[in-house]
Amino acid sequence: MAVKAQDKAVQYRLHVKTGDTVQVISGKDKGKVGEILRTFPKLSQVIVKGVNMRTKHVKPQQDGESGQIVTQEAPIHSSKVMLYSVKQKVASRICYTFDDTGRKVRMLKKTGEVIDKK
């Protein structure tokens, strides 16, 4: 059986990482700001804290226990989020530059703020 090119899983390069603060730029949650909890590079999706909330009805597991309604974040496409500067309260694209030690870092284009700090 031959493997087709469309059957292979493609891993996309995301412009955001886990822990980044982002702003949603389209969809029902447009304008919301949150932190990235998890990334899915193969699907090009991210989970943002407090964005795209879904409710799930959970049945009781034991006798005498009551059922509950659980809310949790669902993934959204990475193209719908933009990095956000908490200091200046503005969303911006990123560019890559080198710091004084020669390490490649991510920088916000609008503010010049360096995101990668280690």
Rank of each mutant, 00 (worst) to 15 (best):
V3N: 07
K4I: 04
K17G: 00
D29I: 09
K56I: 08
K117R: 14
K8E: 12
V90P: 00
K8I: 15
Q68L: 15
I115G: 07
H57S: 07
G27Q: 09
F40W: 07
L108H: 01
Q6T: 15
R54T: 12
H15F: 06
V46C: 03
Q11K: 13
R54A: 08
V24M: 08
N52L: 09
A74M: 14
H77Q: 07
N52A: 11
Q23P: 01
R38P: 00
G102F: 12
I36L: 04
I36A: 01
I47M: 08
M82I: 09
G34Q: 04
E35S: 13
S26G: 04
I25K: 07
V10H: 14
V51M: 03
K118C: 05
Y12K: 08
T39D: 04
K59R: 09
Y96Q: 15
L108Y: 04
G102N: 04
S78L: 00
I25M: 06
Q62E: 12
A91K: 14
I76P: 06
V22H: 04
I69P: 01
H57N: 01
V51P: 00
G50L: 02
G34I: 06
L108N: 02
V46S: 02
T55W: 11
G34Y: 06
E73I: 08
V48M: 00
A9R: 13
A5F: 12
A5M: 12
Q88E: 12
V51D: 01
V3G: 07
R38H: 10
I36N: 08
D116R: 02
V81K: 02
G31D: 09
K49Q: 11
K109I: 15
D20V: 04
V86L: 14
K49P: 00
P41A: 10
I47S: 01
G64Q: 08
V58T: 11
K17A: 14
G64H: 06
S78N: 08
V114L: 06
L83A: 10
I69C: 06
I76Y: 01
G64W: 03
C95N: 11
K80D: 10
D99H: 06
V16D: 01
Y96R: 15
N52M: 04
A5D: 11
Q62M: 12
S26Y: 10
T111C: 04
D99T: 11
K42S: 15
V70D: 07
D116W: 03
E73T: 11
R93M: 09
S79H: 07
I36C: 02
V22E: 02
D100M: 09
G102S: 08
I94K: 03
I69W: 09
K89N: 13
D29S: 10
I69L: 10
H77S: 11
S78K: 00
D116F: 07
G50N: 03
P75L: 09
L83C: 13
V22N: 05
D29K: 11
T55M: 13
I25Q: 00
K59W: 05
D63Q: 14
K80V: 01
Q23G: 00
A2E: 12
R54K: 15
Q62G: 08
M1S: 00
A91N: 08
V24T: 03
V86W: 07
